[in-house]
């Protein structure tokens, strides 16, 4: 492979890991700071991706309408897709939170798992909604038209632009979460995580704080799902499996360090690199075993998770001590 190819490869790796980092931060709000056990990330992934697809693509007309069915098609700009994905994911999270957040943490886990599987089934089977198992294609990529027309940017260089967009959004989300988590609101979340009873005795409405955290995290995941959809330009229900959509994100967050946003980003990049790296290794396998390569790679990831849980449960970075931003100002 010549050098340009390697760089293009690294760029695509960095985009994918950046999108995963956003999911990790969303999960970090829920699990890392509040102790909410969400194992249906794939569901929010899926909803986010489909929402933006339906907002940004035009409704099929003419001969296409015969083959492609979709409920909506607003043909709106990328940014509305991102916002729409966040809003819809937030609403879904709110609805799941109602029956489950007053119960033990396991119930939320089972319910989110169920919702993820249910959404996948619905998108797979209901052709009128979003073209069934074949999914939606032709998602626009932000700024692409503009850059091509004005700056003559060749399509093969577009990924550099997309990487910048992903990193900007990642940094914005990071700053937003850091800000929120250092506020009094963030302190209540951690109090809820550490000891629900004593937080309730201090007069905090546990249910409301948990709900806010669940919805906030889900909205971040929605943005991640939307970014993913515009990156691949085509989505189908088969992409949002528990393996790629949920499990690997948990491994990333735990590897990086729950309760630490830098850890969430680091974990996403480290685990995604391991994941891609193992692909290079399984490519060396003899031809007959190559088809089983992905399974071997996921086996490695699974074993890695168990090893981390037993020997380094705090992850690479561990939880950062969060102090109010006000305190620094007072002391100086």
């Amino acid at each position: 492979m010549e050098i340009g190819g390697i760089i293009a490869y690294l760029v695509s790796l960095a985009i994918a890991a950046g999108i995963y980092a956003i999911f990790c931060m969303g999960l970090n709000i829920q699990w890392g700071y509040t102790g909410l056990f969400n194992i249906g990330i794939a569901g929010f992934f899926c909803i986010g991706a489909y929402t933006t697809a339906m907002i940004t693509t035009p409704a099929p007309t003419g001969v296409y309408a015969k083959y492609v069915h979709q409920l909506f098609g607003f043909n709106m700009p990328f940014i509305f897709g991102l916002l729409g994905a966040a809003v819809i994911c937030g609403i879904v999270a709110f609805l799941i939170g109602i029956p489950t957040l007053k119960l033990g943490e396991d119930y939320l886990a089972i319910a989110t798992l169920g919702i993820a599987e249910t959404f996948r089934l619905v998108f797979n089977n209901e052709k009128w909604l979003a073209n069934g198992a074949r999914g939606l294609t032709g998602l626009p990529q932000p700024l692409q038209k503009l850059l091509e027309d004005w700056f003559d940017l060749a399509p093969r260089y577009y990924n550099y632009i997309y990487l910048i967009i992903v990193i900007i959004i990642m940094v914005l989300i990071y700053m937003l979460i850091e800000r929120a988590i250092r506020s009094p609101w963030g302190r209540v979340l951690r109090a809820v995580r550490e000891d629900e009873v004593s937080a309730a005795m201090s007069g905090k409405d546990i249910f409301r704080f948990k709900m806010q955290s669940l919805v906030f995290g889900a909205m971040v995941m929605g943005v991640g799902g939307a970014l993913f959809a515009h990156y691949t330009k085509a989505i189908s229900p088969g992409m949002f499996t528990p393996l790629y959509g949920t499990f690997i994100i948990w491994v990333m967050l735990i590897a990086g360090g729950s309760g630490n946003n830098k850890g969430a980003i680091l974990g996403a990049y480290v685990i995604w690199t391991v994941w891609i790296g193992t692909q290079l290794l399984t490519n060396l396998l003899p031809y007959t075993l190559k088809a089983r390569g992905p399974y071997i790679r996921f086996l490695v990831i699974g074993v890695l998770l168990e090893v981390i849980l037993i020997w380094r449960p705090q992850g690479l970075l561990g939880e950062e001590k969060k102090v109010s931003t006000m305190r620094d100002k007072d002391s100086t």
């Binding site: 194992i39 396991d106 499990f247 996921f298 086996l299 990831i301 699974g302 168990e306 849980l309 449960p313």
Partner: peptide, 17 residues
């Protein structure tokens, strides 16, 4: 118990793989 549940999720994937 959540850590145990996550660990079992990992075990589930290991068995399936």
């Amino acid at each position: 118990s959540v850590m145990l549940a996550i660990s079992s999720l990992g075990a589930a994937f290991i068995i399936r793989m």
